[in-house]
Design a protein around this nucleic acid. Structure first.
Length: 492
RNA sequence: CGGGAAGUAGCGCAGGCCGGUAGCGCAUCUGCUUUGGGAGCAGAGGGUCGCAGGUUCGAAUCCUGUCUUCCCGACCA
């Protein structure tokens, strides 16, 4: 185990990279831009999946699975969507290898195995799904269709970072079909709320909900809703999107249904997704120089028990009590690890479990047993207290709740601290470039101004918040009239 | 995809200019002593120097190509 000591405040991106590797979350693979998610990192992703999946089911959705490959002819049907993704698609052109006659032991693509039609490796699944939905939908009785899939997708990125942007990543994509525009809009909003609730209540990350500007909108959508979180370097991270697709895909794939009145109409669509990028957010929002800090609700291990002892006899004594505590806490639904490795000293274990972000540590030694207590350390505040053994079954669950709340409140306070109204260009550049935070500023609503601001400062419109200040004003750059403030920030 | 840097033991690095067959710290293994914040001592094991060519009697070192990573830029539904 390596314990790299690059401080968060000194080099944020190096700190992030080291943390991902040292906490055993993920590593690079032999494939450019693709990562290996290691067991501990994957365990966190599984917690994320389980909770989201539950929330999807509670809102009436079912899981299904669609193919990895999309025939090019289907992919290109919805023009804007195809255009948007064209530059980053992996394409399968052949289906066979053969021995290379010039190089013993080497293989080559068999030129005789060229596919009649190229297959696009899905960067997203709208095309294959809408081609399928066409067969599923005849009448209003077939609607709505509320389907989600957990899958991998590929986007050929030029510059990658573990979890934040990789060529292949894991995500879920919901794809729904509705009889009316109102219902589809309601679905779009509902799923964004699911994401926001998940981010705030489970990841302990406060998010700003809003609509994307036309520039930032999903290609093929009429509207894209999003949640945006603030990382500890003041940059924004898009943590989830929900798209109102209008009738764009229904028209492209000719998906019509017969209404009660017997008329044929195009169906209305939504799609929504979150990805392994959430892992990046989780890491960047809470962690510190000691390593990962996990909110209890997503921690694979809630409590680690570290025994302290001098000899076999003491170990036996401490061990017996530790196992008893483990059992008690597990009965309460907690995940408890008893670190009884004899090959490491307590101090080493403390540091290791801190690196891995385990929310609560219980240290237990002979001295504690004599006093009927255990030493409880919380990862978020790095404080320690002695707690009576008799009260652990109440103290620990309460502490976990407190940590969950504390992490959200700290993140929330940080976000508020680093968010300002920018009333003129000077203030705007000061906030975005020097103070490194979020700026609520007036925007004239044009793509030109948006582009220009991006060119000058690298800040983009993260979203037009749903609950924005709608006091009219003048654009921070162009001086033209604005009907309300929008959220600007540098983004990942 | 453009500019810069890097790749040598599991991890972090030295060696490279001036070619002679590889070293340090941590980790690992064995033994003893240890164990309340990253243990000590003694001994041991582990590397075709990213990969492929080339120059040379001889290449980690020089040359060419290639792959991967990092930083900056362009791109990022």
């Amino acid at each position: 185990m390596a314990f790299d000591k690059v401080k968060r405040s000194e080099n944020y991106s190096e700190w992030y990279n080291n943390l991902v590797k040292n906490a055993d979350l993920a590593e690079h693979s032999a494939v450019k831009g693709c990562m290996v998610i290691k067991p501990y990192g994957y365990a966190i992703w599984e917690k994320i999946q389980q909770q989201l999946d539950k929330m999807f089911k509670e809102t009436g959705h079912s899981n299904a699975y669609f193919p990895l490959f999309v025939p090019k002819s289907l992919f290109e049907k919805e023009e804007k969507n195809a255009e948007g993704f064209a530059k980053e698609c992996a394409v399968v052109t052949h289906y066979r290898l053969k021995a290379n006659p010039d190089k013993p032991g080497a293989l080559m693509v068999d030129p005789d195995s060229k596919l009649e039609e190229e297959l696009v490796v899905r960067p997203t699944s709208e095309a294959i799904i809408w081609n399928t939905y066409k067969n599923w939908i005849q009448s209003y009785r077939d609607l709505p269709i509320l389907v989600n899939q957990w899958a991998n997708v590929v986007r050929w990125e030029m510059r990658t970072r573990l979890f934040l942007r990789t060529a292949e990543f894991l995500w879920q994509e919901g794809h729904t079909a509705h009889a009316t525009k109102e219902e589809a809009l309601e679905e779009t909003k509902k799923m964004l709320d699911v994401y926001a609730t998940f981010a705030e209540e489970f990841m302990a990350v406060p998010v700003i909900r809003g609509v994307k500007s036309e520039n930032e909108r999903f290609a093929g959508a009429d509207d894209t809703y999003c949640i945006e979180g603030m990382m500890q370097d003041g940059k924004a991270l898009q943590m989830g999107t929900s798209h109102f697709l209008g009738q764009n895909f229904a028209k492209a794939f000719d998906v019509k249904f017969q209404t009660k009145e017997g008329k044929l109409e195009y169906v209305w669509a939504t799609s929504w997704g979150v990805s392994t990028r959430l892992m990046g957010a989780l890491i960047m929002v809470h962690s510190d120089d000691e390593g990962l800090v996990l909110p209890p609700k997503l921690a694979p291990i809630h409590v680690v028990i570290v025994p302290v002892y001098k000899n076999d006899e003491e170990f036996e004594r401490v061990s017996a009590k530790a196992l008893e505590i483990k059992k008690t806490l597990e009965t309460l639904g907690l995940s408890v690890k008893f670190d009884n490795r004899d090959t490491y000293k307590p101090g080493y274990k403390f540091a290791e479990w801190e690196l891995k972000g385990v929310p609560v540590r219980i240290a237990l030694g002979p001295r504690d047993l004599d006093n009927g207590v255990a030493e409880i350390a919380r990862r978020d505040e790095k404080t320690k207290t002695s707690v009576s053994l008799d009260s652990l079954h109440e103290y620990v669950p309460n502490l976990l709740n407190e940590i969950q709340i504390n992490l959200f409140e700290k993140a929330n306070a940080f976000q508020k601290l680093k968010t300002w109204n920018a009333n003129n260009w000077e203030e705007f550049t000061e906030i975005v470039e020097k103070r490194e935070g979020f700026a609520f500023a007036h925007w004239d609503g044009t793509a030109e101004t948006e582009e220009k601001i991006k060119e000058l400062t690298k800040a983009t419109i993260r979203c037009i918040p749903f609950d924005r200040d709608e006091t009219p004003g003048t654009d921070v750059l162009s001086g033209k009239p604005s009907i309300g403030r929008v959220l600007f920030a540098k983004a990942y």
